[in-house]
Amino acid sequence: MIETRVAVVLGGSGGIGRAVAERLAGDGMSVMVHYAGNAARADEVVKAITSAGGSAAAARADIADPAQVEQLFTETEQQFGGVDVVVNTAGIMLLSPLTELSLDDFDTMHRTNVRGTFVVSQQAAQRLRRGGALINFSSTVVKLALENYTAYAATKGAVDAMTLILAKELRGRDVTVNAVAPGPTATPLFLDGKPQAVVDHLTAMSPLERLGRPEDIAETVAFLAGPARWVNGQIIYTNGGII
């Protein structure tokens, strides 16, 4: 009997996270859809998956709170029998020149993007079954070095470092650890507050002359979550050729 694989998708209630949850469910995995505050959106994702014949549930947690993240993983194990794939798409982006960004905004991003990734990675390292995969989320902006992205890029640089080192620390576990680094992708997180001229400029940067779509990113995640057992300790730039 082939055991159904189980995925936890952090930030799975919208944007890239929703596309990832639905893609992994379509690949036959049971999916725990994590959300931070919007239960209705998470329920919509669960309904979409189950209506298509998949298996899913939703659970809330503050990803920077170790006790809540531990409970999230416990609920997943109790409901689905284990954890095989962890995808941490949860993140926030606050843009400003370095000299104008408030330390409160910096700390807010750091708490979610860095501490949250650290806390989720700790639980994933303890809970993932053999043959499992942890997939963190970085950003192409770390290499692009765009103005106004200083603090956000710094948080994602920290994600890169954690990902590369944890892959080595899990030696002997048969668990892969990678990060996906999207380029400009048409999600509310990316589009919010940007003038159309900026969006047009970022669109034109890709040789494919379009923004990424959540489904493009989900395809890369599905590769890392399933067949890519020899890809480990890598940052996968999924950006249409911007860099």
Rank of each mutant, 00 (worst) to 15 (best):
M1E: 13
I2K: 15
A7C: 07
V8F: 06
V9S: 02
G11L: 02
S13R: 03
S13H: 01
I16D: 01
A19W: 01
V20D: 06
A21G: 03
E22D: 06
E22G: 07
L24S: 00
L24Q: 03
G28S: 03
M29Q: 04
V31K: 01
H34P: 04
A36W: 05
G37N: 04
R41T: 11
A42I: 02
D43A: 14
D43I: 10
V45S: 07
V46A: 03
K47L: 12
A48H: 09
A52Y: 04
A56C: 00
A57P: 04
D62G: 11
A67Q: 10
F73P: 01
T74Y: 09
F80T: 03
G81A: 09
G81V: 08
G82F: 12
D84C: 00
V85S: 00
V86M: 05
L95P: 06
P97M: 12
L98F: 13
L98S: 12
T99S: 15
L101V: 15
L103A: 14
D104W: 10
F106G: 08
D107S: 11
T108E: 14
M109D: 02
H110G: 11
T112V: 15
N113H: 11
V114H: 05
R115Y: 06
V120M: 04
S121E: 14
S121P: 08
Q122S: 10
Q122H: 12
A124H: 02
Q126T: 15
R129V: 08
R129F: 06
G131D: 01
A133I: 06
F137N: 07
S138N: 13
V142F: 04
L144A: 14
L146Q: 13
L146D: 13
E147T: 15
E147N: 15
N148Y: 15
N148K: 15
Y149N: 11
T150A: 15
Y152H: 14
T155D: 13
T155V: 13
A158M: 07
M162Q: 14
T163K: 05
L164S: 13
L164N: 10
L164R: 14
A167G: 12
K168R: 15
L170F: 05
D174F: 11
D174N: 12
D174W: 07
V175F: 01
N178W: 06
N178T: 08
P182N: 01
A186H: 03
A186E: 11
P188E: 04
L189I: 09
F190T: 00
F190I: 01
D192E: 14
P195G: 07
P195A: 08
Q196D: 15
V199M: 03
V199L: 10
V199G: 02
D200H: 06
L202K: 10
M205Y: 07
E209I: 10
R213V: 03
E215S: 06
D216S: 02
I217A: 05
F223T: 02
G226R: 05
R229H: 05
W230E: 11
W230P: 09
W230V: 14
Y237F: 13
Y237S: 09
